[in-house]
Amino acid sequence: MLWMKGVFNMSSQKYAATLSVQEMIAKKKRQRKNWSEKIMPVILQLTAIISVLTTLGILFTLLVETFAFFKDVSLKEFITGNTWYPFSEPGQYGIMPLISGTLRITGIAILVAVPIGLAAAIYLSEFASDKVRRVIKPVLEVLAGIPTIVYGFFALTFVTPILQKIIPSLEIFNALSPGIVIGIMIIPTIASLSEDALGSVPIAIREGGLALGATKLEVTLKVVLPAAVSGIVASIVLGISRAIGETMIVSIAGGSTPNLGLDITGSVQTMTAYIVQVAQGDAGYGTTIYYSIYAVGFALFIFTLIMNLLAQWISNRVKEDY
């Protein structure tokens, strides 16, 4: 074997190269201008900054338009008023009924999603064989991937009629049906995040309990669950946030009657459903009604932001534990 730099001396063929590779590299280098090395980091940084601009855009948009809204309506009325009736003359803008509608539906959703999601998480993390897990996990993923418009259709045309057979006084538009369906929608969120939390509890802790003769259930409920509680709470808070922000299911099946109280059998209106109702209608640009959707959107944004930050704060605390 003979290696000579730059000279290709394999006898049977003719060769194109007459220079050594290093000489070719040096020649090419002189011809090239390496501008991409300097300009690319700048361009890439700009793309990353788009996300910051998006946040600023959301804040700015909501603030400016909300400010316009508060030229017509007092902040006091907005926060403390008990009537939301924007289409009357003059309009009444107390946001409480919308918040009440949102909370009722979110409450129902949580009542559905937490027990089922948690049970599924416990089953998947502690009891299920690999085979079962391979079936259930994709099912949860599919449930999470179904568009909300489909859930809305399902709530209105399937869940509501069935519920009406059980509760005859149930109206076509009600809080119960969309609440249940939103609950189904957020099961995957709670189940998979809670499963992660349960799964990150060290096996040694379980073995400690099992070696003492405790049953799997006892170990799960008394040892694993308490150890994973922060992660589970975080998943529930995230689920609440998604339920509050859910729009299409409540627009389709919840109705458009802003009201206070605890009734879940009649028509309600959530913050999100109100935004949709106005956007679909012909409220002209610049009217108080037009600006009111930004004020409601701002309130919605604050609610979900608090929930998301809370969830992050809780789950960050867990990570420091073990």
């Binding site: 509050i244 922000g245 959707i293 979900t304």
Partner: peptide, 10 residues
């Protein structure tokens, strides 16, 4: 985590 309806307003 921002609701999609808020993106609509933006």
């Amino acid at each position: 985590g921002v609701p999609s309806v808020v993106y609509g307003l933006l």
